[in-house]
Design a protein around this nucleic acid. Sequence first.
DNA 1: GCCGTTTTCGGCCCGACTGTTTTCAGTCG
Length: 572
Amino acid sequence: MKNLEIADLFSKIADALDLKGGNYFKIRAYRRAARTIKDLSEDIEKIYKEGSLTNILGIGEGIAKKIKEYLETGKMSKYEKVTRDIPESLLSLLNIRDLGPKTLHILHKELGVENLDDLKKIIEEGSFSKLEGLGEKKAEKIIEGIRVYEERMGKEKRFLLGEVVPTVNEIVKKLKNIDSVTRVSPAGSVRRMKETVGDIDVLVESNRPNEVMELFTSFPEVKKVLESGETKTSVILEGLDIQMDLRVLPPESYGAALMYFTGSKDNNVRIRGLAQKKGLKVNEYGVFKNGRRIAGKTEEEIYKLLGMEFIAPELREDRGEVELALENKLPFLVKYDDIKGNLHTHTIYSDGENTIEELASHAIKFGYSYLGITDHSKAASYANGMKEDELKKQSDEIDYLNEKLENLTILKGIECDILPDGSLDFDDKILESLDFVIGAIHSGFTKNVTERMIKALENPFLKILAHPTGRLISRRVGYDVDLKSVMAKASEEDKILEINAYYDRLDLNEYNAKEANRRGIKLCINTDAHNLRMFDWMYLGVGIARRAWLPRNAIINTYDLKDLIKILKGNG
DNA sequence: GCCGTTTTCGGCCCGACTGTTTTCAGTCG
């Protein structure tokens, strides 16, 4: 897949043009194309060969031609032309906060800055502040920007969604406790449930913004205040060292502001353009007609006024959702409380921290009607995998508990290792005695993974394939696997793929989940819980499913027990 | 560079905060 390479080229073209003071809209078009291509789930080469590049929103004749050139020759003359006189070391300086294209262009032209060392030097020497329009304060801001930039080695720092949500919830709770605050909501990529986020946006409804800002900036969680005005305050938080932007707006604007600060940027641009054609103006204060506000209290009334369906935050990425909303054709998404059970959990029988009974009472607290117990099989020695006799003992315990429990059914499952030869870790006879079998690869990540998965999927008792790519977002790319072939097999054999909701896995990711659904493959959202706290991750998995536009019936653990068993037993 | 149910040309979202300024440009989201 050359998607990322190509996206990167367009992104650099945009940066280079930006630096040279090129046409704003042209730059925006390149940036948008870069983002779109980066987000594509399909191989761009395949799309090119089908001749359907220009069917993609934001890719027209010009950009399609450049993609064609790159795919056929390995070069993109436009890129080479615009970056000829701009070293890459200069372009990357655009990632420094408070140092934008205009300033960098001047520094390059007037003082010959080409890289980070040059930049540091001219600031130290004082020649920076001598330039017109630049002063000491600006220099200080850029020095701070350089510090952060170096810490991140020039890369954009992203945080795992699951990593920041507890902090967000904590701060939201505190903001709600402020007297003059009537509504609070996370916005931005946190609200859109992106698997990684760059910063935290929170929106507050209040008629006393100054009071809110003052209280907020004195929270112990706040490490440093970057800027603070009447409607917007930016800070760096303790611990995660993440930027958080707080916005405060009055009730009549809260919905408009929520919509705007939720984004995405591309979605906003599209909505505002749409409004403009209808003779309306949309900003974070409301919808205006001839200067008069006609909506803004809630997102719902704004969408309605614009003649479109409500768009769930998870869909707001400008991937065609605006067009569908106008035609009332948005998918009916799976909801967070549609989930009726967790089907991948571990107990003290293998590497979990809790007993079956403890998990069961926790599942009841979640309002679940079933719970799948799936401890590791014997090959998973690192995880204290179960031998045959332990599995039997566990089975007896589950029978006993099921007699006792009224509102929950415990299902007998196993997370069975897929061995190096693609066979499963227990005999078919044992597997047959269980309610369902999850297959998983836990060793040999680079050894014939595709073949092993395909062979395992042929086993009639394996129903669910766990964490199909094996990735850990922050730590490893995952198995060396041809997911397309695995999906083809899963579709043929009527098997289920897991969305593992553990916050560092989120595997399948949203793109793969969408592809699986397109192929008619059913999915299952599990938390892979090793303790009670890990049940909480379920909402992350549902977030992925919603971002993948999945309807409820694509997810088997939204089904009633009766229908679920039919599927797990292969009669569904 | 992209795009079109008034348009194949002429538009392209809109505002907050800061610093260096006396009215605005740059940066960010």
